[in-house]
């Protein structure tokens, strides 16, 4: 059978990867170990990142919060900082799988798997998250939106490891909403999801909004035109109906065993309608 490495430092990870470039990285195992049959576990090595120093935990600096890539969804939910600063992220993560899966799966894993149905991704897009990448050569940062380029495709280079996610502390939103549509209420893979955050003025009109939808395009669907469309408008049926039409035009869903393209497109728009009366929900 293949080897399993349990390195304690990133340096060791880099050494392993330079020696065995085909070695596969994993953290919680909720994706890789599902996909890898007994046979494939025989081939090539696995590198488990769960004990690598500096990859876990949530910390804050002056203007931003750093979430280690191996922070589990369960830890994210329990972290007071996330609940306080980024409630939409907590809400999105709460919809992942069920407790045991959340105790294993990590934010870094959710990002690197780059599934169109990744539950944390729309919220991270709305929050303009950045990724911190390390390799033997050094480190770099880039926006999440650039890091993920398609289903299962990322800008991760050979020998490179996702170390953390950065989110600016001051998002300036006073309203947020997340909704996931699956085939059931727990252990559900998203058929469509929407993360929406906005700054609403005293009269309930949108000053600035960010909207991102999951499972309705090869990667998370966002649109500057859509975000701009909300500006200056109240979240009423008229605004939302028009926004829903923009969404339905913009998304490019697929049909699969869970749902058809038409259903995903329809629901993607419908999810916007739930924002009606949002003013009452402003904290």
């Amino acid at each position: 059978m293949g080897r399993v490495y349990l390195p304690a430092t990133l340096e060791t990870v880099f050494e392993i990867l330079s020696r065995e470039p085909s070695a596969r990285l994993f953290a919680g195992g909720t994706d890789l170990l599902v996909r890898s049959s007994a046979v494939r576990r025989n081939e090539g090595s696995l590198v488990c990142l769960e004990r690598v120093e500096g990859l876990s935990g949530i910390s804050e600096s002056d203007g931003a919060v750093r979430i280690g890539a191996c922070t589990t969804h369960g830890e994210l939910m329990a972290g007071g900082l996330i609940t306080e600063r980024f409630p939409i992220l907590r809400e999105a993560v709460r919809h992942i799988g069920a407790p045991a899966v959340r105790n294993m799966g990590t934010i870094g894993g959710n990002i690197c798997t780059a599934s169109p149905a990744g539950d944390s991704l729309p919220a991270l897009y709305v929050l303009d998250a950045e990724v911190e990448l390390h390799s033997a050569k050094g480190q770099r940062r880039m926006p999440l939106g650039r890091f993920i380029s398609g289903p299962g495709l990322t800008a991760l280079e050979p020998g490179e490891v996702l170390a953390a996610v950065w989110i600016d502390k001051d998002q300036g939103f006073n309203f947020h909403h997340f909704e996931k549509v699956g085939q059931r209420k727990a252990m559900a893979i998203s058929v469509a999801s929407m993360a929406f955050a906005a700054h609403l003025d005293g009269a309930g009109s949108v000053v600035r909004a960010r909207c991102a939808l999951g499972s309705v395009a090869p990667k998370v669907f966002t649109s500057q035109a859509l975000d701009a469309f909300f500006a200056g408008k109240p979240l009423n049926e008229e605004t939302l109906g028009a926004a829903a039409a923009l969404v339905r035009e913009g998304v490019s869903p697929i049909s699969d065993v869970r749902a058809s393209e038409e259903y995903r497109r329809t629901v993607a728009g419908n999810l916007l309608m739930r924002l009606e009366g949002a003013r009452a929900a402003v904290r």
Binding site: V4, G29, E50, A100
Partner: peptide, 27 residues
């Protein structure tokens, strides 16, 4: 595949799925 929970165990007091863990991670 981590879909049913029958293999749940406590790992450092946290519920995890033993079908999605390698033996190495028990260390």
């Amino acid at each position: 595949e981590g879909e049913c929970g029958a293999c749940s165990v406590l790992v450092d007091d946290t519920v995890k799925l033993s079908c999605l863990m390698t033996a190495a991670q028990l260390e």
